[in-house]
């Protein structure tokens, strides 16, 4: 465990050092994240300006969902996409061989090898948005703490889905697009689930569990979440994490490594 932490520290410090070689990226990330946020706020305001409400969600409450969504996006672009999208590349180029020959969990290596500081603006804007909405709604510290648990479950589920999709590159080799599809579907997490028709709600809860990523943590923050949903999120996360591990081991049995 201590060794893993030490390795993780080195992974991340080298990743940041490598990324900072390219400084202009930061400005671009900042602008694009700001643009995205303004876009979604504008979209939301169109609904609420005319007095329309998502069933049971006030303007500020919806902002909490959007804030959590932005936070999640920041998390994905910081931790998930730089690593998990690279699995495809490693399989294609055969550098996965080096990873597999290291006396350390290959799943750990592939999941944490690098991190991109360019998700930072999203993380900050997400927090700002949640803080603003929380202040308007008079939320206290306990509200925020409550939401952390389902949020962690949500992140674990997201990671698992993403990793499994990346791992399918062992069979299909070129699947850059598959993670884009996942990203597209996750966009649905921008608004509370009640914003969608029943069929979609079912899909985003039980097929691609987007509901567990944003709506349920937001409900927990607003002290509206039912315990059953939060435990459900917990089981889902644990189940998916376990499935990811099993799936990776299974996939490796098919790995033939790129020929030179």
């Amino acid at each position: 465990m201590k060794r893993y932490l030490e390795v993780l520290g080195l992974f991340w410090s080298t990743a940041i050092a490598a990324e900072l070689e390219y400084r202009a990226n930061f400005l671009i990330a900042l602008l694009s994240s700001l643009g995205n946020l303004i876009g979604s706020l504008f979209g939301l305001s169109l609904f609420y300006r005319t007095g329309y409400n998502f069933e049971g969600w006030s303007w500020e409450e919806t902002l909490v969902v959007l804030g959590i969504f932005t936070l999640l996006q920041g998390f994905s672009s910081t931790f998930l996409s730089p690593n998990l999208n690279k699995i495809v590349q490693q399989v294609q180029q055969g550098t996965l061989d080096f990873v597999l020959l290291k006396p350390i969990s290959s799943q750990f290596w592939l999941s944490t090898r690098t991190l991109s500081p360019w998700g930072l603006p999203d993380l900050i804007f997400g927090l700002v948005l949640i803080g603003y909405a929380g202040q308007q709604l008079g939320l206290g510290l306990s509200n925020y703490l409550f939401s952390i648990i389902p949020l962690i479950f949500g992140l674990a589920s997201l990671y698992s889905l993403w990793f499994m999709l990346g791992a399918t590159s062992i069979w299909f080799v070129k699947i850059y697009n598959v993670t884009e599809v996942l990203r597209g579907l996750l966009e649905a997490g921008r608004y509370p689930m009640v914003a969608y028709p029943a069929a979609y709600r079912f899909f985003f809860t039980f097929v691609i569990p987007v509901a567990f990523l944003t709506t349920i943590p937001a409900e927990a923050m607003l002290r509206r979440a039912e315990l059953s949903w939060v435990t459900g999120a917990g089981f889902l996360a644990l189940g998916l994490l376990y499935a990811t591990r099993a799936f990776w081991k299974f996939a490796l049995r098919f790995y033939t490594s790129a020929s030179s």
Binding site: R3, E6, V7, L10, F11, T14, A17, A18, E21, Q93, G94, T95, D97, F98, K102, P103, I104, S260
Partner: peptide, 23 residues
Amino acid sequence: MGQKQQLLWDLPALDSLKINAAV
């Protein structure tokens, strides 16, 4: 492998070596 590399492209080799040492 002569045609594949494990060292990090943008960083000094010493950084990659430290990672290997920890691993």
